[in-house]
């Protein structure tokens, strides 16, 4: 029928590409993180933990870590709360709900670069429509992207606008999986709307919430594009995320050793989160009724 090599031939292309472009690079990154190299010189001297020490003692790194953490801490709960609230209104399979779902989902599949460009324009200091709108109420020009106090908030708004629809779609799937009998039982017991939400809906979509929580934190720690287009990490580092720092160190300063060390640190952090996710989801955070 078939030789025992057949299955290997079928998986070979995928495995080969994954090996060359995913697994070997991890080893390469770890190796380079212990070396000093500017991409051009012939030798790459071993420097031990120097790159890591350098990173740990740089203000730039602690700033990026802080900014990324603040970004994750604000944008993730914001997205999840909004998504859960909106999803519970859009869970029905009628035309208005489906239309609105489509509208909300659209930004999550469109180009992040285009969205970042469009919002740069909306938030532009001069001729930006948001400032024009505020001017109607006599509010003076706001320097959205030039003010270190505000720029991160703009990034959070843009990111939320883009990702919200995805969260909503996942929540709707989670909500639709809740058995109708539970709601019927709650109605028989005369449960108030708020009560039903707290006692039935909220605990039963917990697995979905955990799933979204962990993947959006992982995603938040990898934000790059919106920041690269809108602020380049500025003003004064106020929006400088970890991956933006990685890009700068690796590809504009060509400090390959330090860039690799930064990549390895971020990798360990995110893999830790991913393993936490599969552990928690593996145990299935379920609330059997």
């Amino acid at each position: 029928m078939h030789s025992r090599f057949t299955p290997y031939l079928f998986v070979l292309p995928l495995i080969a590409f994954i090996a060359v472009f995913t697994y070997i690079p991890i080893v390469t990154s770890v190796n380079l993180s212990f070396r000093e190299w500017d991409f051009l010189s012939d030798n790459k001297p071993w420097v031990g933990l120097d790159n890591y020490r350098l990173i740990m003692s740089s203000n730039e790194f602690w700033n990026s870590l802080r900014v990324t953490a603040i970004f994750a801490l604000i944008s993730v709960p914001l997205r999840l709360c909004l998504a859960m609230a909106i999803a519970s209104y859009l869970v029905r399979e009628a035309l208005p709900q489906r239309l609105l779902r489509g509208a909300l989902f659209l930004p999550s599949v469109t180009s992040t670069v285009a969205i970042a460009v469009v919002f740069s324009w909306l938030f532009a200091t001069d001729y930006g429509i948001i400032n024009a709108f505020l001017a109607m109420f006599g509010i003076p020009k706001v320097y959205w992207l030039q003010n270190p106090q505000l720029a991160l908030w703009v990034i959070i708004i843009v990111n939320t606008w883009k990702q919200l629809g995805y969260d909503i779609v996942i929540y709707i799937a989670g909500l639709q999986a809740i058995p109708q009998e539970l709601y019927d039982a709650a109605a028989v017991d005369g449960g108030r709307k708020r009560h039903v939400f707290r006692r039935v809906t909220f605990p039963l979509v917990m697995p979905t919430t955990y799933f979204l929580l962990v993947i959006s934190v992982i995603e938040a720690f990898q934000v790059f594009t919106v920041v690269d287009v809108m602020t380049k990490g500025g003003p004064a580092g106020a929006t400088d995320m970890l991956v933006n720092m990685l890009y700068r160190v690796g590809f504009t300063l060509f400090d390959i050793g330090m860039g690799s060390a930064l990549a390895v640190m971020l990798f360990i952090l995110l893999i830790g989160l991913a393993i936490f996710k599969s552990r928690v989801l593996g145990r299935k955070v379920h609330y059997e009724a």
């Binding site: 995913t22 690079p25 990154s29 992982i218 720690f221 890009y247 990549a263 390895v264 990798f267 995110l270």
Partner: peptide, 12 residues
């Protein structure tokens, strides 16, 4: 589970 940024420099 592998974040793509770790492959950036090596693939380059």
């Amino acid at each position: 589970m592998i974040p793509s940024h770790i492959t950036l420099i090596p693939n380059y």
